[in-house]
C-alpha cells in the first residue's frame, strides 16, 4: 500500500549520537586509567620517579578526572534540556541503570579528584597559581592516613563506572544488538585496555624522559595480552548475538555486513584497534626491534579502536532495531 499514514522519520532518529559514544569512551578511559594506575601502584614497590610505572600512575591520576569531567559535560550538553539536569541529582530511581550511574559518578568523581590532589600534592605546592587550593591541600594531607581506604573505594567506584555503561545499554531489551549479558564485560575489558593505552601514551609523552628496552618489551607484551583478551570477548559477544533468536540474529548479521557502519567495525575496531597493534607487537617481538615509536602508535591505535567500538555499538544498536 502506498504510504499514507504520515512521516515515519521519528522512528529513524538516532537519539544517542556521537556525544554519547564519546562519553562512553571518556567514562571508560577515566575508569580504566585509574584502575590501571591503582593496580600499578599496588604492585610496584620501588618509588623511583623516573620509572615508566610511576609515569603510568601519574598519567592515570591526571587522565581520570579530566576525562570524567569532560564526559559529564558532554552528557549534560547532549540532554534535550541541559538546564534541567539538576533533576538527576534530586531524584533517584534504583531500577534505572542511568540513575545508578549518576550515583556512581557522584561518588567516583570527588574521590578521583581527591586522589589526584593526593598524588600531585608536591606538584601543586610547587606552583603558586594553584595556591588557592592550599588550604584544601592541608585538609587533603590529613587524609593521608586513609590513603589506602580511599584507594579501595576509588577502585570499587571505578569498577562501577567502568561496568555501568555496559549495563546502561544491555538493560534495554528493546534493542537487539545491546541486549547481551556479554556487553558489560566487553565494555569493562575495553575500558581497561584503553586505560593501559592512555596511561602508556600520556606517561611516555609527559612524564618520562627515558625508557629502556626491557620496559618497552614488557609494555608490548602487555598490549598483546590485552588484545588477546579483547578479541575473543568481542567474538563471543557477536557470536552470541548471531545465535540469538529471531531478529537478534538477522540484525547482527546486517550490522556486521551492511554499509559504512560495518566498515567502521571491521576496519576501525578490528583492523586499527586490534589487528594493527597485534601485528606490530608480533613483528617487534619476532625481530627484537623495540622502538618507542611502536608503543606510541599502538597506544593511539588501541584508543582509536576503543572509541570506534563505542561509536559502532551505539549506532548499530539504534539502526538495526528489527
Amino acid at each position: 500500500m502506498s504510504p499514507m499514514w504520515g512521516s515515519t522519520a521519528q522512528y529513524e532518529v538516532i537519539h544517542w549520537s556521537w556525544a554519547i559514544a564519546v562519553y562512553l569512551f571518556l567514562a571508560g578511559i577515566s575508569a580504566g586509567s585509574i584502575i590501571v594506575a591503582l593496580l600499578v601502584k599496588w604492585n610496584r614497590h620501588e618509588r623511583s620517579n623516573s620509572s615508566i610505572w610511576d609515569a603510568m600512575i601519574k598519567s592515570g591520576t591526571l587522565v581520570a578526572p579530566v576525562s570524567i569531567l569532560a564526559g559529564l559535560f558532554l552528557l549534560v550538553a547532549d540532554l534535550g534540556r541541559p538546564l534541567s539536569f539538576y533533576w538527576l541529582l534530586i531524584r533517584f530511581n534504583p531500577l534505572s541503570v542511568m540513575s545508578l550511574g549518576v550515583l556512581f559518578l557522584l561518588i567516583y568523581t570527588p574521590i578521583v579528584l581527591v586522589f589526584t590532589l593526593l598524588v600531585f600534592e608536591r606538584t601543586i605546592v610547587k606552583y603558586t597559581w594553584l595556591s588557592p587550593l592550599g588550604s584544601f591541600i592541608e585538609w587533603v594531607k590529613s587524609l593521608h592516613s586513609y590513603a589506602k581506604t580511599i584507594e579501595y573505594f576509588l577502585m570499587a567506584a571505578a569498577l562501577c563506572v567502568g561496568t555501568y555503561t555496559g549495563f546502561l545499554l544491555s538493560a534495554l531489551y528493546a534493542i537487539p544488538l545491546w541486549n547481551s549479558p556479554v556487553l558489560p564485560i566487553v565494555f569493562l575489558t575495553s575500558s581497561i585496555s584503553s586505560g593501559i593505552a592512555v596511561n602508556i601514551l600520556i606517561g611516555l609523552v609527559f612524564f618520562k624522559s627515558t625508557i629502556n628496552t626491557e620496559s618497552i618489551k614488557y609494555l608490548l607484551v602487555l598490549d598483546l595480552r590485552v588484545i588477546m583478551t579483547e578479541l575473543p570477548l568481542l567474538g563471543i559477544f557477536f557470536v552470541g548475538l548471531l545465535y540469538g533468536g529471531g531478529e537478534v540474529s538477522s540484525m547482527a548479521k546486517a550490522a556486521l555486513s551492511h554499509g559504512g557502519l560495518a566498515l567502521v567495525f571491521w576496519l576501525g575496531v578490528i583492523g586499527i584497534g586490534l589487528l594493527l597493534p597485534l601485528a606490530t607487537v608480533i613483528l617487534a617481538l619476532r625481530s627484537h626491534v623495540y622502538r618507542v615509536g611502536y608503543i606510541l602508535t599502538n597506544a593511539t591505535a588501541v584508543l582509536l579502536g576503543v572509541l570506534l567500538l563505542r561509536y559502532y555499538i551505539i549506532y548499530a544498536g539504534q539502526i538495526y532495531l528489527g
Binding site: 522512528y11 540532554l79 534540556r81 534541567s84 538493560a171 528493546a174
Partner: peptide, 24 residues
C-alpha cells in the same frame, strides 16, 4: 521533570515515544 535524556525512547520496544520538537 523530563530532562530529555532519551533513555525511555530507546527502552520502548514499540517505538512509541518521541521528542516533541516544540516543547523539547
Amino acid at each position: 521533570q523530563c530532562i530529555t535524556c532519551k533513555y525511555c525512547i530507546l527502552a520502548c520496544p514499540y517505538h512509541a515515544r518521541f521528542i516533541n520538537p516544540l516543547k523539547n
